[in-house]
């Protein structure tokens, strides 16, 4: 096993083993899936379970996701945890728009996914009417295990590039087409394989 003593003087010539080659797209996707930071978008009961997922017992940091960002600009994944009211919907959309690309959405719980038991005037019947949802986690509220499963599913989709392909075709995670807000500067696009 080659040991590199000093890269600056030896260069990479000292590396005889332990070199992995790969396409840059794959590496980018791998890196994205391994440290996706969630935006803390807690709304209702599900937010409590989301916090429980982050706490000691379930320990979401095993998946590189313990850094709940308060600012949407630093986050990659928005976990919509709870029921979205008509009053909250514009706020939710704004937070989503503030997130940097690439970004993903997990709809946590039945209320966020479909309105759940609250089929009434106040609740948006599915957050996919507002933002493109990539993974729906069922349950009322989903247990931390379910959320971890949803996160793992999303990681798999990110790593396989499935989500980005679908979004390029349909423009959305779900069925609803979401118009992009024109950016003032040109975004750097990575991993568009």
């Amino acid at each position: 096993m080659g040991v590199v003593g000093d890269v600056l003087s030896d260069g990479l010539g000292g590396l005889s083993h332990n070199v992995i080659t790969g396409r840059i797209e794959d590496l980018v996707k791998w890196a994205r899936s391994r440290s996706s930071w969630p935006a803390s978008f807690g709304l209702a009961c599900c937010a409590i379970e989301m916090m429980a997922t982050g706490a000691a017992h379930y320990d979401i940091s095993r998946f590189g996701m313990e850094v709940f960002r308060a600012s949407p600009r630093q986050a990659d994944i928005m976990i919509v945890a709870g029921r979205v009211s008509q009053k909250m919907a514009p706020v939710l959309r704004q937070v989503y728009d503030q997130m940097m690309e690439p970004k993903w959405v997990i709809s946590m719980g039945v209320c966020a996914s479909s309105g759940g038991m609250f089929n009434n005037y106040a609740i948006v019947q599915g957050v996919d009417q507002i933002v493109p949802v990539d993974v729906y986690a069922p349950g009322c509220p989903p247990t931390p295990e379910t959320l971890i499963h949803a996160i793992e599913t999303l990681h798999g989709l990110i790593e396989s590039g499935e989500i980005m392909r679908r979004r390029e075709v349909t423009g959305a995670g779900a069925d609803v087409h979401v118009e992009e807000i024109p950016a003032t500067s040109v975004p750097v696009l990575l991993g568009s394989s």
């Binding site: 709304l43 209702a44 709870g82 029921r83 009211s85 008509q86 009053k87 909250m88 706020v91 038991m117 609250f118 089929n119 009434n120 005037y121 106040a122 609740i123």
Partner: peptide, 23 residues
């Protein structure tokens, strides 16, 4: 306030007393 208004009091009028607990 009102950003989490769920209309539960309205929903409660649709659910029976048996189901009301879920609400």
């Amino acid at each position: 306030i009102g950003y989490l208004h769920t209309g539960m009091e309205k929903t409660a009028e649709q659910l029976t007393f048996m189901q009301g607990g879920t609400n």
